[in-house]
Write a protein that binds this DNA or RNA. Structure first.
Lengths: 221, 221
DNA sequence: CCGCTACCGTGACATTGTCACTTAAACCAT
DNA sequence: ATGGTTTAAGTGACAATGTCACGGTAGCGG
């Protein structure tokens, strides 16, 4: 656990012995099943969450059920949004849920708040973390405004490819649609087109990428 | 000038005399004409810019000329993005330009960097500033994903209304289109529709709002 | 008054989003 | 195995938005 913290929290080496002990003593460990919603809202404080092992998806959703994925959290990643209460000016509503069975460590709100307010290195980490997710969201925004669906779909397929480590993706059109914030029918339509262009081959619940370079070319511009 | 800084920089009261003097001695004052591009890029450091008087528009744009407004800066506002170099994880490209003749004060890069690294209150301000702009961008993202053009246009008209303080807006369809990241024709089309619904009345270079409550209802959902 | 420029109007078509419905694969219980 | 149920995918029609290629026209400076 200590080596995990050392790797995920760059300020670990700058903490006092007391701070390190406090952190270790109050750290909570949880195991969640795939599909568990870990956070939903804007101001609450569940504390700072760290993915020990697993995968989570951070997204926004509207009243009428539409949603779009903002970014993903993988092994070792830290989710600062669930500690939004510590940052007055951070006021928007997000949700996140596990995409695989996951082990998650939580630094309780009051502990992180204390570290953050008294230790410059922690404060700096918080800033870098927020800035990093800001950058992710800006990337998404650019995609939304400047790219067409074909390019975005190609990007989404390649992301899934990286996530599962295989050219055969076990995802439904529906899942990709919610990633992209569009409708399933749109994804189906485009995938069929991709298939006639021999970029992918389709079967129920699976998408096999047959021409990754072409997809990359499509996505990257 | 000191009272201005006191109001715009909440950490002013927490600075040492030396820090305050450094800030005052190195502060640069500039006057820019309407339409001047003050920043364009991602990693550069022009320092922290403060609007003494005027208005600026922060936006992103693509190679092929498309653009969308992220948020605006008004009297007293501080632009942290132009100090992106201080934040490693902040890596995206934005631009900003004055929308009226403006007086702008700049805290040079090395000065702010010094304050930011040695003074916890400055660091905290930086974090709050970044978080605040992050929130603005998230609001925009939600609009993009969850709202239709009619709602967004109504919102844009009301924003212009607030900016100019009059129900007669001196803006072109083109300007509104770049605000919304859409095409002029789309704005023209919708405005004509708004006119038949008696929400606005149109003339060259002007839009008169005749039914603000209805526009508000439209925008707010 | 002329001609130029910036702004606006418009029709045709492409892309994307929405809706209603059908088809089909996988799964499960008997 | 059989049939029924659930979930995934296919489809056609239409609406909303984006793109393109024009044409018109108000206002401005000579």
């Amino acid at each position: 656990m200590e080596t995990f913290l050392k790797n995920s929290l760059p300020f670990w080496g700058q903490l006092t012995d007391g701070e390190r002990r406090l952190l270790l003593d109050t750290l909570q460990l949880h195991t969640y099943e795939k599909g568990t919603i870990l956070y939903h809202g804007s101001g609450e404080c569940t504390g700072v969450q760290m993915i020990l092992h697993g995968r989570a998806r951070v997204y926004i959703n509207s009243k009428d059920g539409k949603e779009i994925t903002l970014y993903r959290l993988l092994d070792g990643d830290v989710c600062m949004m669930s500690a939004a209460c510590m940052i007055k000016s951070l006021n928007f509503s997000i949700s996140f849920e596990t995409e695989t069975d996951s082990e998650i460590a939580v630094i309780p709100r009051h502990v992180y708040e204390k570290l953050n307010s008294e230790n410059m290195f922690v404060k700096n980490f918080t800033l870098e973390m927020v800035a990093s997710k800001f950058s992710d969201v800006m990337w998404l925004l650019e995609q939304l405004v400047f790219s067409n669906m074909g390019q975005r779909l190609a990007g989404a397929l390649l992301e899934q490819r990286a996530l599962c480590g295989s050219t055969t993706l076990n995802v439904t059109h529906e899942q990709i649609a919610t990633d992209l914030g569009t409708a399933r029918e749109v994804v189906t339509r485009l995938l069929k087109q991709f298939q006639t262009e021999e970029l992918v081959s389709l079967s129920r619940g699976k998408i096999h990428l047959t021409n990754e370079p072409a997809l990359r070319t499509l996505a990257e511009q």
